[in-house]
Every structure is written in C-alpha cells, then in structure tokens.
Design a binder for these strands. Sequence first.
DNA 1: GTCTATAGCTAGATAGAC
DNA 2: GTCTATCTAGCTATAGAC
Lengths: 212, 212
Amino acid sequence: METETQGIQKRKKGIETVNRILEISADLFAHKGYDGVTGHEIAEMVGIRESSMYNHFKNKTDILNTLFDIFIDKVPESRPSDADLDKMLMIMQPEEIFKNILFYFGGHVSGTIENIAMIINNEKYRNPRAAEMYYRYVVNEPSDYYERLIQKMSRCGMIRQIDARMLAEQYNYVSLSLTKEYFMAKNGLADMHSVVKYMIRTIEFFCGLMKE
Amino acid sequence: METETQGIQKRKKGIETVNRILEISADLFAHKGYDGVTGHEIAEMVGIRESSMYNHFKNKTDILNTLFDIFIDKVPESRPSDADLDKMLMIMQPEEIFKNILFYFGGHVSGTIENIAMIINNEKYRNPRAAEMYYRYVVNEPSDYYERLIQKMSRCGMIRQIDARMLAEQYNYVSLSLTKEYFMAKNGLADMHSVVKYMIRTIEFFCGLMKE
DNA sequence: GTCTATAGCTAGATAGAC
DNA sequence: GTCTATCTAGCTATAGAC
C-alpha cells in the first residue's frame, strides 16, 4: 500500500523529472536540431529510461510543443517592462538603455528560453507553429518594443525626429543575426569577444543615427 | 560484352544521375533539414533505388560535402563582378545598384545554390564546416563586397563620407534575415509581397543614410 | 514513476546478379 | 549503373512488473 506522503513525493519527483526532460530537450534540440535528437538521448541525460519519458509526454512532438508553450509564457520577462524603460529614460543615455536591454536577457532569462528561441529559429522553415511564433515573438513584438522605446526617446528630446518603426525593425534584424552568432560563440563556433564587441558597435551605430 | 558507345552512354547517364541526386538533395536538405531527409526519400525523387545512390556517393555526408564544394565553386557568380559594378556606377543611382545586386541572385543563380545557402545557415550550429563557410561566404565576403561598393560610391561623390565598413556589415545582416524570410515566403510560411516590399524599403533606408 | 522487455518500423549501407 | 535482397543498427512507442 502507498501512503499519502509517498504519493506526494512521487508527484514532486514527477514534476522535477518533467522539468529536467524539458530543460535537457531544449538544450539538445537547440544544438543538434529537433530531428537530430533521439528520445533515448534525452532520457539518458535525464537519468531515466526512454520508456519512462512516455509517462510524462505522449511523444517527441509533445515535448517540442510544451517547450513552445513555455516560451510564449516566459517571453514577456525577457525584456525590461515599459515602466522600467520610463525609469531608464530619466537617467540613462540611449546607448546605455540599449545595452541594458541587450544584457537583460542574459541576466533574467534561463538558458532554456534562449534554447527554445534557437529551436524556433531553426524549425521555422518546416514547422508552421515555429514559423508563426517566429514572426510574432521574434520579429514583430521586439520591433514594436524598440519602436515604442525610440518614440519615447524622441518625445524626451533625447534624439532627433526619425522614422522610429523603420529604425526599430532594422535594429531588430541586425540583432537577430548577432544573437545567432552569440549562440554559435557559446558553442565554440565563433569568437565570443568579437560577437559581443560587434553587438556594442551596432548599438553605437544605431544610436549615432538617432542623434546626428 | 559492352561496346564503347554503351560505355559512354552509361557514363553520361551517371553524370545526369549524380546531378539529379545533388539538386534534389539540396532541395530536400534545405526544406526539411539534413537530419530530416532519408536516403530512400532522395532516391525515390531521383527515380532510382537507394542502393544505386551508393554507387555515386559514399554516404549521406558525402552528398552534403559535395554540395558544399559546389557552393564554394559557384558563389562568386551570385553577385555582379566588381567590373560590372563600375559600369553600373556610371549610369545608376545607389538604390538602383543595390536593387540590381539583390535581384541578380535570383536571375543568375540556380535554385540549388540558394538551397545550399539555406543548408549552411541551418547546419552552422552543429557542422563545423558549415560554420566556417557561413562566416566566410555569408558574413565576410558579402560585407567586403558591399564595403567596396560603398567606397566606390563615396569616391564618385554619389554619397557623403561615411563608415563604409559598418554600413556594409549592417546592411548585410539585415539582408541575411530578409533572405531567410524570402525563403520562408517561397514555402508559404511568409507573405512574399511583404518580404519583397521590405527588402526594397531596406535598400531605400540605407541609401537614405548614405545620402543625407 | 520507473523499470525491463520487446514489438514494429525505418534508417543507412553492402553484396552480388544483370 | 541499376536492380533485388538483405544486414545491422537505431528509433519510436507500448505492455506489464515492481
């Protein structure tokens, strides 16, 4: 017979296992590609048998879709809020604000979210849900965010009158390419120092456009 | 006994088959990912048995590496030569030149090269050769090319004095993101009209920076 | 929830006939 | 060069014991 406490412990263990499966899957999918990862590989890293995974997830696609759900849930936390931006605007120069946003991600968001972003980026050509999420959360929402920021800066008189939408989109597209290079650098496939230096130079370039 | 003519015909057929395998592999790898494609699938589309493919290629990796070799061989043809640029500079505005370069690719280069570019882009996180090619042929060489173009324009007095390198790199990074969206649009995962319109707007934005 | 065992299938690759 | 036949290995997923 199973006591009530044993039942609770099992459930706790289950939640931990589910989280570990998700974390490890995100990491493997991001680095080896969704099709390049086997259930066996995930289970081995989690420390359980492959068959035990099917207690938590219906199949491999179910893991992927759960990761996508997590991303949608957590992505708003990946950037400073608009209220935070208002505070920054009072005490910081444009360059500082953009740098702050850039490094906010690294500080406030788990590696899992970063990995899911890479999965979305890699699978967008063949997975319609990934394609939809790419446009919504990687292209449009960040562009909207930067547009609002540039408009705020313009209203404060920190920068000159400028096409905020265009500048926001251009900055976001450059950032996208650089984020991928940052990911490559993390895996020894690019020089981290150069990538970070270039990110800073990009911020200076765009802030230069806004001021001149 | 095999006559000499029969031998020649077999060899011709062989070359055609090899080319078909490469074309179809490039297409499938680009759209479904390298790991998402099976040898059986390629062979079926080529119209031969999988086992016959192993007469032409040692294995699946061999096909991929041959595609990479082809890319290196053909990539110089994907942009107008520096001599062509000099001719353009005499009769065209900056916008027109950039648009010409943009559409040159579509007109002068086979879909296979475009597909290989996508494969490099997708595999760069796990395939060191793809990573190396990405930096060399997708990031650095095009940036060098645009830098030379902007310097030429500057020397002609068509545009103001400007940081040509920085502008070239920024334009190239935006182009990279947009090229991928163009590829998505071709597969019904994005709106082609919007993507092309945005490419034009990007050219106008950068040319605006160079003139103002 | 986790395990062992295994079914059922598909992948990559080779051997040998024509 | 292409075919049929086949091997081995690996993958996804399920059944049933603990």
